[in-house]
Design a protein around this nucleic acid. Structure first.
Length: 737
DNA sequence: ACGGCTGCGACG
DNA sequence: TCGTCGCAG
């Protein structure tokens, strides 16, 4: 739903850059013989020639449209080149286009604040660049204007004119123009240069709109395509909106736009002018009402966010009609495919951008064969994300089963899943390394490439979802044993963060996945499968474990059997439900009352989300303290326990893991992948404070000594408070009092 | 049998 | 917060 934003006082220069039929261009670059030919990109060629998702301008001239099937396109354009979207793991693979999009973004981001709006669209705030240009080299003193800039369309100025270029030059260089128009002129010149640069460096053409806000820039970029740019001077806005059909405005292409037309009899955006703000608010709510009132006047204060990277990664597939999945085994099979791709993508994100995903979500659409409450939606479920393909697959399946139980209620009937998707979100930057990490890395420069692979298993050995709560109690008892500090430390470490309050426990969405097989009160897997049997039977008897990767070649499924990840024994690990400590929970007024070292740490946390820059909320801040992540070799010789985490029990799950900094960047060449099939290997180690051998401290450089001692001091402080091992816990206690 | 596949933002 | 819904392309 649109929301109103305050209008900035000073005029801004905003551009919207839109790649022309981007997927087609990406394919044409890959295969230059396609250039100039009518071309379309299709996916799933099997049914009626596949669905078109991008159409070249040559093909559009024949009347080929998106949303046509390949067969239809052939009818109106017999020579059309239909290029299939790459397929991997039985589903469309968009990585070619994603990577191409990043190429473009990285060029566009050089001239101002840049927001990646989609795989092929970008917003730019060029205000500063335009102002500088106006001060230093205004268009009126330029001897020559960029050729591409001279091809601009200036709304209200160059609409129907014979000597277009001359008029554009005149408009761009007018010395008596409004200040705001001059800024737009500078923006147009800058964008022309950028578009030329994009073309030179990527071979892609794009179109752009230049205006005073995002809404108008977006409108303008679509007005002259392909490979052109359009400027929207303020003076042209009224006429533009007066004739603009409601549905053409972004956000009004759906139900809201329909409501405007049917309920208010508004045909164009200009027609909205007859309503007062209050009238619009009354019908559509405060935010939307004000937003509508503003856009009718060309007002839109939305900022260009400084964001080049996506906020989430998702993989999904639909199973329409007869392809619907009807057994947990087939669902698991497909979830495994989706999770494999997802795992690869978040691993790349980590390698390339040093970001960790913190939440895994599974979505599905499903129906019940017996149709009684056909409307019931399949619920989405999420949990903390653990890295490693096998982990993600395991958790995704648990989430699905949890959703399925809720979906079915007590009914034991057949069902079908018509779509599945897995999403990784809450992508946060790995906090910047502290000096100890840098020191150790600098000291071992070779480790960045030479370090051995460590399985994610060792880094994130346990997961709340797998833990049963029993050991958690044991850990608490161990804490009480003051005679054995080692046990206590380990217990604290094992504890990770806090135990969840009992009332929340019931809410844990993925509880009792395994109870299905050992508790009569829960539905068993067989029961979940209902009476409906899938076409492809299980190869072995039906009582195999869910996590076992089945080797079914399902009808319509991916050609290759999934790689077997080995057995997933019933994890007997403890269950620790955790909750995160939020930045928002910190009352700034109490910071002054904290011990000095805690103050410093807290202030560091408060700064960290700015780096993350991915969401308004930062779910966890534990990740920025207490321990570090380093290369294996960096750790060797410094710390007593070379098998970190595995036996010392200082595990964390990804939501609260204590990584200080990513491991060395993985070599980005194509000579070899480090991934094996049973789960991704990962060149990163986690170091917990508990793993530090005090006897080695003396050997460290003095500044590192101080840092380590600071950690130990804080750790001890938390211990003696008997409230837990982490600084966060300390803080939590302080907050309550 | 539905365009499929993504991704973002607002709301309760 | 999580989960749902709307919207875009």
């Amino acid at each position: 739903m649109p929301i109103a934003r305050p209008k900035p006082k000073d005029a801004r220069v905003i551009a919207h850059v839109d790649m022309d039929c981007f997927y087609v261009q990406a394919e044409q670059r890959k295969n230059p013989e396609l250039r100039g030919l009518p071309t379309a990109v299709v996916q799933y060629n099997s049914w009626k020639g596949g669905a078109l998702i991008a159409v070249s301008y040559e093909a559009r001239r024949f009347g080929v449209k998106r949303s046509m099937r390949g067969d239809e396109a052939k009818k109106v354009c017999p020579n059309i080149q239909l290029i299939q979207v790459p397929v991997a793991r039985g589903k469309a693979d968009l990585n070619l286009y994603r990577h191409a999009g990043f190429e473009v973004v990285s060029i566009l981001a050089t001239k101002g604040r840049c927001e990646r709006a989609s795989i092929d669209e970008v917003y730019l705030d060029l205000t500063d660049a335009a102002k500088s240009m106006l001060l230093e080299t205004p268009p009126e003193v330029l001897e020559a204007i960029d050729e591409e800039a001279l091809k601009s369309h200036i709304l209200g100025v160059t609409d129907d004119i014979t000597d277009r270029e001359g008029n554009v030059r005149e408009w761009l260089c007018r010395s008596d123009a409004d200040h705001e128009d001059k800024l737009l002129a500078c923006g147009a010149i800058i964008i022309a240069q950028l578009r030329t640069k994009v073309l030179e460096e990527t071979k892609f053409t794009c179109s752009a709109g230049i205006a005073h806000n995002k809404m108008l820039a977006k409108l303008a970029s679509a007005m002259h395509k392909p490979a052109q740019q359009t400027v929207v001077p303020s003076s042209s806005v009224k006429d533009l909106l007066a004739s603009l059909p409601v549905k053409k405005m972004k956000q009004l292409g759906g139900k809201l736009g329909s409501s405007l037309q049917t309920d208010l009899e508004v045909k164009t955006i200009g027609d909205l002018l007859q309503f007062t703000e209050e009238q619009l608010q009354e019908r559509y709510g405060i935010n939307t009402g004000t937003w509508l009132w503003n856009i009718a006047r060309g007002i839109n204060g939305e900022e260009v966010e400084d964001r080049l990277l996506p906020k989430s990664h998702g993989c999904g597939k639909t199973f329409p009609g007869p392809q619907a999945l009807k057994t947990t085994a087939s669902v698991e099979n497909w979830l495994n495919q989706l999770c494999e791709e997802l795992s690869e993508r978040i691993q790349s994100d980590l390698d390339q951008n040093k970001r960790l995903a913190h939440t895994l979500t599974v979505h599905a659409k499903a129906f019940k064969v017996n149709d009684l409450d056909f409307h019931k939606k399949f619920p989405s479920k999420s949990c903390p994300l653990r890295y490693g393909t096998a982990k993600i697959q395991e958790d995704a399946m648990k989430l699905f089963v949890s959703g399925l139980r809720e979906f079915l209620g007590s009914q034991n009937i057949g069902w079908g899943v018509t779509s599945l998707s897995v999403t990784a979100s809450k992508l946060l930057d790995i906090p910047h390394g502290t000096s100890i990490v840098r020191f150790l890395q600098d000291k071992n420069p070779s480790t960045s490439l030479a370090c051995s692979n460590v399985s994610m298993e060792e880094i994130f050995p346990l997961h709340p979802a797998d833990q049963n709560g029993k050991q958690n109690e044991v850990a608490s008892e161990e804490i009480g044993d003051d005679n054995d500090t080692l046990v206590r430390d380990k217990a604290l470490c094992r504890r990770g963060t806090w135990t969840r309050k009992p009332k929340d426990k019931a809410k844990c969405s993925i509880l009792n996945y395994f109870q299905g097989s050992n508790s009569s009160s829960c539905l068993t897997k067989e029961a979940l499968d209902g009476s409906f049997q899938d076409h492809a039977p299980l190869s072995s008897s039906g009582n195999q474990h869910h996590s076992r990767v089945n080797k079914i070649k399902q009808q319509g499924g991916p050609a290759e059997a999934n790689n077997d990840t080995g057995t997933h024994p019933n994890q007997t690990g403890q269950k620790i439900d955790t909750w995160n400590f939020n930045i928002e929970d910190i009352d700034p007024s109490m910071i002054d009352e904290l011990p000095l070292e805690i103050q410093r740490e807290v202030q560091g946390w408060l700064q960290s989300p700015k780096r993350a820059n991915t969401s308004k909320r930062v779910s966890s801040i534990e990740s920025s303290n207490s321990s570090a992540c380093m290369t294996k070799q960096a750790l060797d010789g410094f710390f007593k326990d070379h098998a970190p985490l595995s036996s010392s029990g200082s595990q964390n799950y990804s939501g609260t893991n204590k990584i200080e900094q990513g491991g060395p960047a993985k070599a980005n060449n194509s000579t070899g992948t480090h991934r094996n099939q049973t789960g991704q290997k990962f060149d990163m180690w986690t170091l917990n404070i508990e793993d530090i051998d005090p006897s080695i401290i003396d050997e460290l450089p003095s500044e590192i000594q101080r840092e380590v001692q600071g950690w130990l001091r804080r750790h001890k402080h938390a211990n003696t408070s008997k409230r837990g091992s982490s600084i966060v816990h300390y803080f939590s206690s302080a907050k309550k009092s």
